[in-house]
Computed example of a mutant assay.
Amino acid sequence: MVTFPGQLPGLRGTTNSNSPVFSAIDLQRRSQELLSYSISDNTRKLYDTALNVFKAVCFNIFRKAYYHEEKCPPHSHELVNFVSYLSYKQFSPNTIKSYISGLYFCKLHNVHDSTQSFLLRKVLVGLTRKNPRADDRKPLTLDILSSILRLLPTICKSPYESALFSVIFTTAFFGYFRMGELVQNSVHDPGHAIQARDVIYLEHNNTVPIFLRHSKTDQNIHIVGPKRIWIIGLSIIKHAFCYARTSSYGANLELARHNATIFWQGKGGMRLEEIYPKVRRLLKVEDAPHILVIHCGGNNIPMDKGAKSADLRFRLKAVLKKLTALLPSTILIWSQILPRLH
């Protein structure tokens, strides 16, 4: 049994006289629970499939033919023979590799990982070279999408079903959605599919923002609060704000789904030396931004008589250096000065 004291050294908290007592089994269960959260549901399903196939092939067929002893984890040479067996059965290299990756999960059960042996890795490389397969999947073009939409009324059971699939296919195509983001896993398992509360209609600009609550490329959900973005510069910034405000994107450029807001500050005729004082004045009434975008310097051209382009670069670096010291936690983005014909 393991006893935790009421207050652990170096940790905050009130002292508890009734110290909880945990057994090794309790701690192992909690560790397995935490490990289960480290992989996605689809990855877990892949691992389960790999283990089931390995057991079905090795324990029921392969090991009966060659081995009399069952043990876990399997030895590396057994995995090599397993790969060879699947190769004879015309399994694709990608399928075989996914099964081996599933067996790698044995490492999380505190056993030796035999899937990383040098011999097995070389056999998998040879398998890929011996059976090269080009990806024959074709991209979905706008013409193909149009053809699918025209055929839906003839193959769907009802107008509602036809409209449903039309919306799904069109949204996936133009929004670059994964199907798992639009379609539930089953009737009782919504998975990561968007829900009714995640879709709203904005009548003022005739748009439909869709909020994704899950990202396959950012499963740790790095959201720490609202992001503030400042865009400061000359008249181009002012005109850009006026255009964005009346466009379908809105003044926030549809960044609300990323929990971000944009604060536009454009001034006609602004010069490079006005940037730093402008930022200092804004900090008196606003919190420091997470991101500061600057587009300025065009009005500093043409330069004073006798000045060189290097002088403008030095002045620019000096301004950025002062801003870095003033805003140490802010990401500074410099927008290139637009070229001029005269």
Rank of each mutant, 00 (worst) to 15 (best):
R150Y: 11
L103N: 02
T141W: 03
S186D: 10
N94G: 07
F165D: 01
D113V: 00
V125M: 12
S117Y: 04
S114W: 02
P190C: 06
F165C: 08
Y104C: 08
F118D: 08
F173V: 03
I100G: 01
L108F: 12
I148C: 14
S98G: 08
T170K: 13
T171V: 14
I148D: 02
V187F: 14
P190H: 05
S158V: 07
I144S: 13
C106W: 13
F169C: 11
P159Q: 03
S117D: 00
K157S: 14
G126M: 05
K107I: 09
S101M: 12
H192T: 12
Q184G: 08
F105M: 13
F105C: 13
C156F: 07
A134G: 15
D113P: 03
S162V: 07
S146N: 15
N185M: 09
E181W: 02
L151C: 13
G191K: 03
S186M: 10
F177L: 13
L151R: 15
L149M: 13
V183K: 04
L145I: 05
L182T: 06
H192K: 11
G191Q: 07
D113Q: 02
I144A: 14
L145R: 01
L145E: 02
T95Y: 05
F105D: 10
V111R: 04
Q116A: 08
S117V: 02
P139K: 01
L140V: 13
G126C: 07
Y99E: 00
T115C: 02
S162P: 10
H112E: 14
H109Y: 14
L108C: 09
